[in-house]
């Protein structure tokens, strides 16, 4: 039995001899029942380590209510603003365990996209959807997909706009009448 095992090990190395580095990091002691860490149990002492110096908090930073403070450093990309900022403030009233936190943030992200377009227009910049979506590369590599997307988008937009202006029973003016004005 032992001979069989030894033979099997030798044959494994032979079989994989064309793979550079085969088995160099094999570690029979790698016990998969424990996370990859150098265990110190330091966290048993609680939140007690010597914290790095605090980055000055010069803008509003939302922090998870599952921690008591703002981390020693943080990013300052895209500070809170507008309606999306209000929604984010609301979302951060709930813990990371609560779906209202995450769904609120996703909603804020979608609102933020509209705010981004408004911001662009207010600065005199008309967003170039074609370029921003990378459709130049798309037209080169899979033009049929891009054309399909454009046609579907145009169709959906036409249907939605037509429905909006001609919905029966509403007092809204029909699209035709609107265009004649």
């Amino acid at each position: 039995m032992e001979n069989e095992i030894i033979e099997k090990k030798e044959s494994l190395e032979d079989i994989n001899s064309d793979i550079v580095g085969w088995g160099v990091d094999a570690d029979p002691e790698n016990d998969p029942t424990y996370p990859m860490k150098k265990r110190t149990n330091e966290e048993h002492q609680g939140y007690s380590w010597d914290r790095p110096p605090q980055q000055p908090i010069n803008i509003e930073i939302l922090h998870s209510n599952e921690r008591p403070n703002v981390s020693a450093t943080f990013g300052t990309s895209s500070p809170l603003s507008g309606v999306s900022g209000e929604i984010r403030r609301y979302a951060f009233k709930y813990s990371e365990n609560d779906n209202r936190h995450w769904l609120g943030l996703l909603l804020a992200d979608r609102v933020n996209v509209v705010e981004g377009i408004v911001d662009d227009l207010s600065k005199g910049h008309i967003p170039n959807y074609f370029a921003e979506r990378g459709w130049k590369a798309g037209m080169k590599h899979h033009p049929e997909e891009i054309v399909k997307k454009i046609l579907v988008t145009a169709l959906v937009t036409t249907v939605v706009v037509s429905w909006f202006f001609s919905s029966s029973g509403s007092k809204k003016p029909k699209l035709g009448k609107l265009l004649k004005r």
Binding site: P35, M36, K37, W49, H63, S64, R67, N69, S71, F74
Partner: peptide, 23 residues
Amino acid sequence: CGSCAFCRQELYGNCHESNPSAT
């Protein structure tokens, strides 16, 4: 950060002093 309990256990992807928004 290199100094929190998690970084000191070489869990550098789990630092507690670099992200205020989520634990």
